[in-house]
Write a protein that binds this DNA or RNA. Sequence first.
DNA 1: CGAGTCATTGACTAGTGTCAATGAGTGTGG
DNA 2: CCACACTCATTGACACTAGTCAATGACTCG
Lengths: 251, 251
Amino acid sequence: MPPLDFLLNPDPRFDAVDPRHICCHVMNGSRCEIRDFSMCNVLRGKAVDELEQMARPTNFPPRTPLHEQGAAAHSVFNITAGVVRLSKLLSDGRRQVFGFALPGDFLGLGLPERHAYSADTLTHVTACHFDRGHFKRFMSREPTLLRRLYDLTSRDLAMAQEHIAILGGRNAEEKLACFILGLRTRLVRTVGVLTTIPLPMSRQDIADYLGLTIETVSRTFTRLDREGVLEVARDRVRIVDLPRLETLAAT
Amino acid sequence: MPPLDFLLNPDPRFDAVDPRHICCHVMNGSRCEIRDFSMCNVLRGKAVDELEQMARPTNFPPRTPLHEQGAAAHSVFNITAGVVRLSKLLSDGRRQVFGFALPGDFLGLGLPERHAYSADTLTHVTACHFDRGHFKRFMSREPTLLRRLYDLTSRDLAMAQEHIAILGGRNAEEKLACFILGLRTRLVRTVGVLTTIPLPMSRQDIADYLGLTIETVSRTFTRLDREGVLEVARDRVRIVDLPRLETLAAT
DNA sequence: CGAGTCATTGACTAGTGTCAATGAGTGTGG
DNA sequence: CCACACTCATTGACACTAGTCAATGACTCG
């Protein structure tokens, strides 16, 4: 799947690129692919250069923590490639997955003192790394950026409410349909419309996102496959019957 | 329950009070009870007066809509007394309740073009009503207010994530324990610590908040009552065994 | 090639949902 | 003031979805 290369496999030459011009103007030798929809797209002129000076481009291998729940928050991140799992380990041993951050997503929106949840890479990930203190001060000098982050937080809140509605009263089939279609929608901005949806997360991650068990996720995938709605593989699903999937999701 | 009068029964003489000084300084002839923790508490001097000019104090009887999901958003509200249910009717006929707004809460945080959900009063409610356009312009002139609303939105996002964790993997007993303790915590800022928690919402509302049915809510209340954890009445519960309730909630 | 991880499948169980009847509380009109 | 209708909550019987436990299969990595 060539259009997903960008998402899943950042350029290995990344490390060689001049770090002073990676984040908001130039990346991998060309224009930054995510700037159009990223948090920094409201900045102009000198402010962009200033943000660039602060940005430290960073490369994470798969299954690496960007930050841990409860730890003091020193950093905020802007994801430029790859997929990050946002989750929290609860006191009863269960893990709740809140979502999967994609390129263009900003981690650390509320600028909290301590991270409320953990962020771990599922794929190779490249991200612009900012010192939280520097970023906070920069934000208070730049009301347009503050306004932008406010809107992004509002969007995240709306997404969380969608998530609540999915968890609140749906059966396993409907939950899974919502999950696939939600992922599909969010991938549009980076890779365009897809019929094959990559699943870089494990069945356990999907189960923890939907409030199900891994067995139920597996069985439900199998059933949707048998019924000709999806073609399920370990790391991707192909949408065979979009109308029926949409009927199941029925938001 | 005298300390709950403020929450549930606003002063009937409310309408008679000089409307020019109701919202942020003076209410019911005395200092505004919610200003300390409300969105406007970051404003000083002239800005407070300006906000007051914009605020239209409004009185809503029980079971009245403040706004409907999907409707164009003309207003934002700051709740000064009473309880408001935030919910959304889904396409399958189910109703998802996202939460219950209490005095000091601000409705319309993202300043969206259209309301994403409905807001209906459960009790008598008094609220400062603002024209959305005026408020938006005022906010862009007042970075401290923008910053404050940003923080409030981040707090709402954290609450939504709590809600997700509650819905994600708990049984009915744990969900109900979380609900009661969550309500208790949020009531602290207005009425102080309580052992008797008022329940102005119906069993159906609780069920729709927790992703359960009304029957399961009822049965679970009955069991917690039999086991000596709660004393359940139609419109309130008394916490008899707080430690056991906290064990059940086990966040 | 073997160990290890992750996903699938099956058998059984437990917790909720569904359907239906009863009970309690509230408001209205005679 | 009481009777009635109406709404909401409780309780019971039963069904069914999803969870639990266990075994097998598929894939990856050294």
